[in-house]
């Protein structure tokens, strides 16, 4: 058993499931948005706002944003632990990896907070 404090759930299986379920949610969200764009010939700002103003769409968008954040964290964490290693960076690898992960976490936090503010008009 390899323990790691920075993986999303500490469990390989849980991360594996979250990554796949979040991909499914994002796929459905993409189909939903694409379908709306294709099926709405006279698309204007008012229609777009009305489409996103419904409670179900707000919930779906929130779910998609959270799914993207979880998906991105697992992916970026995997990339970071693959490439930012002692082999390339020596003893400083842990520092570099920590900086990289703080940047990733910061970007994802801003993305989630900003998205929720927009979708829920906070």
């Amino acid at each position: 058993m390899v323990t790691n404090a920075t993986s999303l759930t500490r469990s390989g299986l849980s991360d594996f499931i979250i990554q796949r379920v979040s991909a499914l949610i994002l796929g459905l969200y993409t189909i939903c948005i694409t379908g709306f764009l294709l099926l709405t010939p006279d698309l204007d700002y008012a229609t777009w706002v009305a489409f996103h103003g419904g409670t179900w769409m707000q919930l779906f968008s929130t779910l998609a944003v959270l799914a993207l954040a979880a998906h991105a964290w697992i992916g970026m964490w995997t990339v970071g632990t693959d490439y930012i290693r002692e082999h390339y960076f020596g003893q400083r690898a842990t520092v570099f990896r920590s900086i990289y992960m703080v940047i990733c976490a910061g970007v994802l936090f801003v993305f989630v907070a900003w998205s929720l503010q927009i979708f829920w008009r906070l």
Binding site: M1, V2, N4, S7, R10, S11, L13, D15, T78
Partner: peptide
């Protein structure tokens, strides 16, 4: 299986 359920051992 419990020993393998971490983010590295199998899931890499």
């Amino acid at each position: 299986l419990a020993d393998l359920d971490d983010p590295f051992s199998v899931f890499r």
